[in-house]
Amino acid sequence: MKLSELRPGEYAIVKDLLGKGAIHQRLLSMGILPGTVIRVVRASPFGDPVEYEIRGFFISLRKQEASYVEVDKIVPLGMVPSGSVVRIVLIDGGVGFIRNMGSMGIGVGETVRVLRGCCPMLVQTSKGKFNIGRGIAYRIFVR
């Protein structure tokens, strides 16, 4: 789906950039690349442009520009209600963070069961039950 189709509060991961030339290069230099996580923050009063969060900063894109960004919708683990079983698709962090998560059985492709919703949340992984704080729960994405 296109980034412009998402609603405020939703998350997505960039799959591809469709534009050419200036807009393409501009999005790239702002750090919108395949694999980047984007949060839709809010729409302006007339619905266009829309504010997004990427890599910890905030930008405004017109609908026209956002339609060049092809994305997949994802959900942060923190938003998953208790009782759900979900599959992890992305862990947003450095090598160290990913390694730490891995030692708890939280890795891309793994399935976890949410025992208690955020926050702190309790999850059941292949390696046991773990408590997860808000800061971490919003850096793990599931589908």
């Binding site: 200036a22 999005l27 504010e51 900063f57 905030f58 930008i59 405004s60 894109l61 017109r62």
Partner: peptide, 11 residues
């Protein structure tokens, strides 16, 4: 104009 992309940072 050449319709510049309007990518605006909200600092």
């Amino acid at each position: 104009g050449e319709s510049q992309p309007f990518v605006l940072e909200l600092p």
